[in-house]
């Protein structure tokens, strides 16, 4: 029986899909709200954002062991962030669908509700005490920041259908990208400082290279260039989306090592003396 942390096997790509869809859908709704205020025809974009969020929740439905009891998810709003996420999704769909008839103010309301939904998703991860990479408090801003950057990326991918990419959208996208870069860097620094399973840090180190190239520098360069060459806006968006989704997929399916087991002291056996503690598979202090 292994005492070292190992990749959790309870949440797979289906659970990751919820975080991918929820984050990108929320970000896209926010950009759609800004686009609506700017007078752009964003109805299809709102529908796409709602479909992403619904798709993510659908993936979760596929993962649960008793799918026909899904309404039981609403039973614990007092302490469960999963229940709160389920409640938060309701006004997102209500306002989002109403926005198709009532216009930009309702899109803005849907985007606000979606931000609450995305916050709940971040808190879901943070409350998972068994997974050191998730319970790190910076996971909440990371979920928010990367979701908004992914949504901005999707919006830029849709700009060919709206005419040229608006300058405000490029600027907002660049701000979101820088925000994601800052939060991602802070998240990793805090995880390293606090101590974490060695495998978690190794996976994140390998991922960081891909995220830096695909999810940060390429989209940033393309977004800056898109001020002059509009065709590069969708490229910037696609890179940002791919980088963000890869990051979150990794966080759920590859960097989610369990706590493992630790001893504060090794026992005195027979005539021997007690010894120091141990925390196999961890960086930093022992126990």
């Amino acid at each position: 029986m292994r005492a070292v942390p190992r990749q959790q096997g309870n949440w797979d790509w289906r659970a990751a899909g919820n975080f991918l869809g929820g984050g990108a859908g929320t970000g896209l709704l926010l950009f759609a709200a800004l686009g609506g205020i700017a007078g752009l025809p964003v109805g299809p974009i709102v529908l796409l954002a709602l479909a992403l969020i619904a798709g993510g929740l659908g993936f979760v439905w596929l993962e649960i062991g008793r799918p026909w009891r899904f309404l039981n998810v609403y039973f614990n709003p007092r302490t469960s962030w999963m229940t709160r996420e389920a409640y938060a999704a309701l006004p997102v769909f209500a306002a989002g669908l109403a926005a198709l008839w009532l216009g930009p103010p309702m899109i803005a309301l849907a985007a606000l509700c979606a931000l609450v939904f995305l916050y709940c998703q971040g808190r879901i991860l943070r409350a998972a005490k068994g997974i050191p990479a998730w319970r790190e408090p910076m996971i909440v801003p990371l979920a928010l920041a990367t979701g908004l950057a992914e949504g901005g990326g999707l919006f830029l991918m849709a700009t060919p259908f709206l005419g040229a990419a608006p300058r405000w959208a490029l600027l907002a996208f660049i701000v979101m990208m820088l925000l994601r870069l800052g939060v991602w860097t802070a998240y990793r620094s805090r995880l390293i400082a606090a101590g974490a399973p060695q495998e978690t840090l190794a996976v994140l180190a390998r991922t960081a290279r891909a995220v830096a190239i695909l999810g940060v520098w390429l989209p940033l360069l393309a977004a800056v260039a898109a001020f002059e060459v509009a065709l590069l806006a969708p490229v910037a968006g696609a890179c940002a989306l791919a980088g963000g989704w890869w990051l979150k997929f990794t966080l759920v399916t590859r960097a989610a090592q369990t706590q493992g087991f630790a001893l504060a002291h090794t026992p005195a056996r027979g005539a021997g003396a007690a010894g120091p503690g141990a925390r196999p598979g961890w960086t930093g202090r022992t126990a």
Binding site: Q8, N10, W11, V60, E63, I64, G65, R66, P67, R69, F70, N72, V73, F75, S80, M82, I124, A127, A128, K129, G130, I131, W134, A256, T258, Q259, F261
Partner: peptide, 22 residues
């Protein structure tokens, strides 16, 4: 009879004490 099998408890447990059999 209430559990939906979401396994959230399994990832929240630092002792890897929970099991779900499909």
């Amino acid at each position: 009879d209430l559990c939906i099998g979401c396994a959230y408890c399994a990832v929240a447990c630092p002792y890897q004490a929970r099991y779900k059999v499909e």
